[in-house]
Write a protein that binds this DNA or RNA. Structure first.
Length: 546
RNA sequence: GCGGCUGUAGUCUAGUGGCAGGACGGGGGCUUCCCAAGCCUCUGGCCCGGGUUCAAAUCCCGGCAGCCGCACCA
């Protein structure tokens, strides 16, 4: 049976990419340990991501706690929206989404239960009686402090850590928009039934960017044009240039296109073929509670079809507005842009108002601020009484009104584990060589977990000595090197092919005569002879390090 | 979470009440001048817990995990 998922996962377990977590105590679904090769590969994928987003695009990378206090997730909507109302059949135990079953657009207990009672809804499986509505929240709950009185949640996304730091970040960027903030870290979701290997995990790694932008400037992004496969919410799949997609209104604004281009560039640069990538727009009813437009980058897989690996959401001002409301902190940004005419503002003089109006002074001051300006005094209404306030009790200032906004957020959110899996699946290749099966992981140099393997052609102490020296030298120059002298040379090549090592350096008897070695290429199996002193530079070049 | 099927060395697999076998892999050795060759040798396993039985990897119950379907999937 030609099941690539099975083959890739078997290889991952066997060669030390992935192991089921807690194995000796019994595995738990939705958790995986990364072995040495998997860890190296994952780190390299993330490092490439940083090269693009943090180093080249200049987004600020921050790192915030994985536990959040309750307020954060009450404000963000995760406490209410990440909760599903459920009912259980008292007879057969099946569990259903209560709101779906009752066909109501509400998650309130009373509304759902009333509907279930009225319509006489019973278990769709066995017709049994249904339980009361109960709630399941996808967030892991914990408590903070020795008394456990402060509720905390393991974050379901890294994004909130960025939003709640918005003011600091904005000042850090010297109060200018737009700017991007990146974060790489773990997120946690207590999935009801995780399956499918790395596709649905309970603890996973996200690489997220929150790109803050003036809502009126979403269309001024410039980007390099590229043809992508787009699947709009209404309409058919189409291969189209991003510039055209923007001009035809398929994409809401050019910032979407800019981020799509970056996502595509990243995915292809780690080795996912461009023709296996598409962007699919969410329908209104499948959108997350915070999003008002969302395009998923999906990668085609053999077993699961198109799999979402990156979510690109226009979160609008949802998050900043929500935190502003909940925290009472003003998160608006003054654009400094003047709006139309000058505006006159009344400033009460408290030092004069106080002695005269005593306890009413405060109310009068408030009324003055909101009062309409008039020459020669202002009439204000306080406690139902009209009072004329002479000019000496206030100052009038003319100011220019500026445009204040809540920035909008464009969020590309990468699932590192899913990306690693789809990469492996596309890299996995089998071919026949001399009647034998050769398994090759065609992962690009620089992303593959091992950079180069070094071998003595045969187990001869002169060759072994030189090989070890070469391996040591390459290691000190930052390469991930594997040294191997066991078994036949062919076996050693195959071993490296299977874990994706792009280059093998072999020391042979010719080396003893002219100080040259061979570099053997994983993909072509061809060899190239180089002098030992040129080896390091040659490899660095092949790995794209210089 | 529900239902069905399944769980034997690192991986793949045979065995179905009576001593758990193989292949590949891995370690050591021999051999070997370039693609999983060969020879010798070692290593290592019945998912966990309970029950039935003189005897359980095998039968029963529970748990855990995997696969398929349903539900769920920000």
């Amino acid at each position: 049976m030609n099941d690539k998922y099975k083959k890739v996962m078997e290889l991952c377990r066997r060669r030390g990419f992935l192991w089921p977590s807690f194995e000796i105590y019994g595995e738990v679904a939705g958790f995986w340990d990364y072995g040495p090769l998997g860890t190296s590969l994952k780190n390299r994928i993330i490092e490439r991501w940083r090269e693009i987003y943090v180093k080249r695009e200049g987004f600020y990378e921050i790192d915030t706690p994985t536990i959040g206090v309750e307020d954060v997730f009450v404000a963000s909507g995760h406490v209410s929206e990440f909760t599903d109302p459920l009912v259980r059949c008292k007879k057969c135990g099946s569990v259903f989404r209560a709101d779906h079953l009752a066909e109501v657009n509400s998650s309130e207990t009373e509304i759902i239960e009333e509907r279930i009672r009225k319509e006489g809804i019973s278990c769709p499986e066995c017709g049994g009686e249904l339980s009361n509505v109960y709630y399941f929240n996808l967030m892991f709950k914990t408590s903070i402090g020795p008394e456990g009185d402060r509720v905390g949640y393991l974050r379901p996304e890294t994004a909130q850590g960025i939003f709640i730091n918005f003011l600091r970040l904005f000042r850090f960027n010297r109060e200018k928009l737009p700017f991007g903030v990146a974060q790489v870290g773990r997120a946690y979701r207590n999935e009801i039934s995780p399956r499918q290997g790395l596709i649905r995990l309970r603890e996973f790694t996200q690489c997220e960017v929150e790109y803050f932008v003036d809502p009126e400037r979403k269309d001024s992004a410039s980007f390099e044009d590229v043809e992508l496969l787009l699947l709009p919410a209404t309409g058919k799949e189409i291969k189209i240039s991003l510039k055209k997609a923007v001009s035809e209104g398929m994409l809401a604004h050019s910032l979407m296109a800019y981020h799509m281009k970056l996502i595509y560039e990243f995915l292809t640069s780690i080795g996912i073929p461009g023709n296996a990538i598409r962007f699919r727009q969410h329908r209104r009813d499948e959108m997350a509670h915070y999003a008002n437009d969302c395009w998923d980058a999906e990668v085609l897989t053999s077993r699961f079809g198109w799999v979402e690996v990156v979510g690109l959401a226009d979160r609008g001002d949802y998050d900043l507005r929500a935190h502003m409301r909940h925290s009472q902190v003003d998160l608006r940004v003054d654009t400094g842009e003047e709006l139309g005419e000058m505006k006159r503002v009344v400033r009460p003089r408290m030092s004069k108002l106080g002695p005269v109006y005593k306890e009413r002074a405060k109310k009068i001051a408030e009324a003055l601020k909101n009062a309409e300006f008039k020459d020669g005094g202002i009439i204000v209404e306080v406690d139902g009484e009209k009072i004329e306030i002479p000019e000496e009790f206030y100052e009038v200032e003319e100011i220019k009104e500026t445009r204040k906004i809540i920035p909008h957020v464009i969020e590309p959110s990468f699932g590192a584990d899913r990306i690693l899996y789809v990469l492996l699946e596309h890299a996995y290749d089998e071919e026949e060589v001399n009647g034998e099966l050769r398994v090759v992981l065609r992962v690009p140099p620089g992303i593959a977990p091992i950079d180069v393997a070094v071998f003595p052609l045969v187990n001869d102490e002169r060759l072994v000595k030189i090989s070890r020296e070469i391996a040591e030298d390459l290691r000190t120059h930052g390469l991930q090197v594997e040294y191997d002298e066991g078994g036949s040379i062919g076996r050693r090549y195959r071993r490296q092919d299977e874990i994706g090592t792009p280059f093998c350096v072999t020391v042979d008897f010719e080396t003893l005569e002219d100080e040259s070695v061979t570099i053997r290429f994983r993909d072509s199996m061809k060899q190239e002879r180089v002098k030992i002193k040129e080896l390091r530079d040659r490899l660095l070049k092949l790995l794209g390090r210089c």
